[in-house]
Simulated assay, not measured.
Amino acid sequence: MALVAETVAEAAPGFYLIESVHGFVVHMNASAEHLRLVRELIGKRLMAAGVGTGTAEAAQLVTSELSGNAVRAYGDLVPLVIEVDVTELGVWVKVHDPDPGRLPHRRSVRMDDAAAESGRGLPLVDAFAPGWDVAVTPVGKQVRARVPLEGRNRG
């Protein structure tokens, strides 16, 4: 069985894909391989939906940053739900983790500070998906970000 599931019936251990008309939802245990597969899925699905390369790459970056933050906070194999959905307003990326207590927040980090070893992830998310937010849910929290479509206002 291929690790990339094309349908729910082909789900692999720790990686459960549900496709929809405008995107997909993946329930997974975070691992380097699963995160790579999600980035590939984003590229393929967004290009197939006619989304521009720049928007697709921005959505991949935002997803990588948000899921990477969860892995850094909770460790490898943390259960995540990643949703990617194309709308007329842009590409929605939603990353759900099981901890409602540790909420990400915006910090002022200079992107050109060579001495800073971390802290650039959320400023990158701000750059590509301004206005991202966090919602506490009954089973954790969801970080939601909208990447505007190329050629449209970022506001």
Score class of each variant (00 low, 15 high):
Thr55Lys: 08
Pro148Gln: 12
Arg102Tyr: 04
Lys141Arg: 14
Val93Asn: 05
Met47Lys: 06
Glu88Leu: 10
Val109Trp: 08
Lys141Val: 01
His105Arg: 15
Asp76Lys: 03
Thr53Ser: 02
Ile42Gln: 08
Arg154Ile: 12
Ala5Phe: 00
Thr53Asp: 11
Ala116Asp: 00
Glu40Asn: 08
Ala73Phe: 13
Ala32Asp: 15
Lys44Trp: 14
His27Val: 00
Val78Arg: 01
Leu77Gly: 05
Leu35Asn: 07
Ala135Phe: 03
Leu124Ala: 15
Val86Pro: 00
Leu35Cys: 07
Lys94Thr: 15
Gly68Val: 09
Thr53Ile: 03
Ala116Glu: 03
Gly140Phe: 06
Ser108Leu: 09
Pro100Asp: 09
Leu124Glu: 05
Val71Ser: 01
Leu35Pro: 12
His96Asp: 06
Gln142Gly: 02
Ala145Lys: 11
Val81Leu: 12
Gly90Gln: 05
Thr7Leu: 10
His22Leu: 07
Ala58Thr: 07
Gln142Lys: 15
Thr53Gln: 11
Asp113Tyr: 13
Gly52Trp: 09
Phe15Ser: 01
Asp99Cys: 06
Val93Gln: 05
Ala11Gln: 15
Val4Arg: 01
Arg39Ile: 02
Gly151Ile: 05
Leu41Ile: 03
Pro79Met: 00
Pro104Gly: 06
Phe24Val: 04
Arg120Gly: 14
Glu117Ala: 13
Val109Asp: 00
Leu149His: 01
Met111His: 11
Gly68Ser: 08
His22Phe: 14
Ala2Ile: 10
Leu80Trp: 03
Thr55Cys: 14
Leu80Ala: 13
Ala58Phe: 03
Pro100Tyr: 13
Tyr74Cys: 04
Leu35His: 11
Tyr16Trp: 13
Asp99Thr: 02
Gly131Leu: 04
Phe128Pro: 02
Tyr74Asp: 05
Asp76Cys: 08
Pro98Arg: 11
Trp132Lys: 01
Asp76Trp: 01
Val51Pro: 04
Arg106Gln: 06
Gly14Pro: 08
Val147Gly: 12
Ile18Thr: 15
Phe24Gly: 11
Met111Cys: 07
Gln142Ala: 12
Asn29Pro: 02
Leu61Arg: 06
Ser67Leu: 01
Gly90Thr: 09
Arg146Phe: 03
Thr137Trp: 10
Phe128Trp: 04
Lys141Asn: 09
Gly50Met: 04
Val86Lys: 07
Leu103Phe: 14
Arg146Gly: 04
Pro130Met: 08
Pro98Leu: 02
Ala12Ser: 15
His22Trp: 12
Ala49Asp: 01
Trp132Gly: 01
Met1Glu: 10
Glu19Gln: 05
Val38Trp: 09
Ala5Ser: 12
Val147Gln: 03
Val62Cys: 04
Pro100Ser: 08
Pro104Met: 08
Pro79Asp: 08
Thr63Val: 05
Val81Arg: 11
Ala127Asp: 13
Val109Arg: 15
Val86Gln: 09
Ile82Leu: 07
Leu89Phe: 10
Glu19Ile: 04
Val71Lys: 00
Phe24Met: 04
Gly140Arg: 05
Asn153Cys: 12
Pro138Trp: 13
Arg146Met: 15
Glu10Ser: 14
Leu41His: 06
Val86Gly: 03
Asp85Arg: 14
Asn153Val: 10
